[in-house]
Simulated scan of single mutants.
Amino acid sequence: MADERFPAACRARLAHTLPFWRSGRWARLSPLGMAIAVGVIAAVISAAGLHQRGGYAGDFTWAWRAARLLAQGQNPYRDPGLDPIFPYPFDAPLLYPLTAVVIAAPFALFPAWLAGSLFFGCSAALLAYGIARSRRWYLLPLFLSAPFYVAATVAQWSPLVVASALAPGLAFLAVCKPSIGLPVLLTHGDRRSWQQAALFVLLTLALFPLWPLGWLHNLRTEHGYPVPLTVFPGVFLLLALLRWRDPRARLLVLMACFPQRLWFYDQLPLWLVVRNGRESLLLTVASWIGYWGWRLASESPVRNGSNPADAPVWVVTCIYLVALGIVLWPSVRRGWEGVRAWWQDRIPVTGSTILPRAER
């Protein structure tokens, strides 16, 4: 009967496959091979998402346009083709520092849709390489998270920022998006990392000395980037200060203090607070609960998309607060064990007394 329900071919296949996973030989796969596989898949997903949004490079369009203007000797922070009256992705001025523009320069040789998907594929490949090289396999669930998916559909920078924390040679990439890169650099960077970042910024100043003025001017015109602490229930994130000596707690607090796009993709660096696969998987599942809660709670049909302005509460509740629980869990567990030990000491253990039966 067992043979009919479970054919010999399937039993043989499982007997060959399960030892591979149980032995941990999958963890000895080549970091380069894993990077290529993840990069190709991420590029395909990104290309599909960008095609759905109109065929441009998504959020990468700003850096892509700026790189082309800079190559022509023009000021990318005064682009007449960017104005709120235009549709996405031309509805805002350049809000990225010149460091991002320099990184985008090699991709400016390609059409917009191809540049965006290639950029995101390379970013995901660097992230996968950093995970494999540092042996932090518990971070792999982040590739299945809602922030990674949303970042892929708009060709965002967050995977590159996370990669900068895992590979010391990539630390300078954190300054491409300071709103989430500086918290990562402050908590994961060493002296050499800061030297790399400072040298990169100095090189961009040599290329275009006045770019910080144009960048800061454009930043003052935008107000759609709230601070997570100001979005209820984000004030509870200050509880992470109870474990300030823990770099993970400092990362959470610093991320909560920087203005950012509370639309899932900017929160990918929060996966750096996890310590094992269970916590990583918990944060990944919680991110999807927040994503679909936001999509289904929107007034417009899911197929028509949802308003990003409705997302901050879901992002703070389902990603930030879950990350807070992960950070505080060791203290909570030790506190509970202390209370239980105290309670056991207060109540002495008494043996049961059994009276002998009366003899008849």
Rank of each mutant, 00 (worst) to 15 (best):
M1N: 14
E4P: 02
A15P: 08
P19H: 01
F20D: 05
A27G: 10
L29Q: 11
L32Y: 14
L32Q: 15
V38W: 06
V40C: 04
I41V: 15
V44A: 15
H51Q: 06
G55M: 10
D59R: 02
D59I: 04
T61S: 10
A63T: 09
A67I: 07
R68Q: 11
R68D: 09
R68S: 10
L69V: 05
Q72L: 09
Y77W: 13
D79S: 09
L82S: 10
P87C: 07
Y88Q: 04
D91A: 03
P93Y: 07
P93M: 08
P97V: 08
A105R: 02
A105V: 01
F107D: 12
A112C: 02
W113H: 14
L114V: 09
L118F: 03
L126T: 02
L127S: 03
L127I: 03
Y129M: 06
I131G: 02
I131H: 02
A132E: 09
S134R: 06
S134A: 14
R136D: 00
P141A: 00
L142V: 01
F143Y: 09
F143S: 05
P147Q: 00
V150L: 04
A151G: 08
A151S: 08
A152G: 03
Q156Y: 11
W157A: 12
S164V: 11
L166E: 01
A171Q: 07
F172D: 06
L173H: 03
A174Q: 11
C176A: 15
C176Y: 12
K177Q: 11
S179E: 15
S179Q: 15
I180Q: 06
V184H: 11
L186V: 15
T187W: 11
G189M: 01
R191V: 08
S193W: 06
A197M: 10
A197H: 07
L199G: 05
L205R: 06
W211H: 06
L216T: 10
L216P: 10
R220H: 13
T221N: 13
G224K: 13
G224L: 11
Y225Q: 06
V227K: 12
P228N: 10
V231D: 04
P233E: 03
G234A: 13
V235K: 14
F236A: 08
L242T: 05
R243P: 01
L254Q: 02
W263G: 04
D266I: 11
P269Q: 02
L272Q: 01
V274Y: 00
V274K: 00
G277S: 14
G277T: 11
E279N: 11
E279L: 08
L282I: 14
L282H: 09
V285N: 03
A286R: 00
I289A: 12
Y291L: 12
W292K: 08
R295G: 13
L296S: 12
E299G: 10
S300G: 06
P308M: 10
P312Y: 12
V316E: 03
I319K: 02
I319V: 14
I319W: 06
I326V: 08
I326P: 00
L328W: 00
L328H: 00
L328I: 00
P330Y: 01
S331M: 01
V332S: 07
R334H: 07
R340V: 10
W342D: 07
D345R: 15
I347S: 06
T350H: 05
G351Q: 07
T353L: 14
P356F: 08
E359I: 06
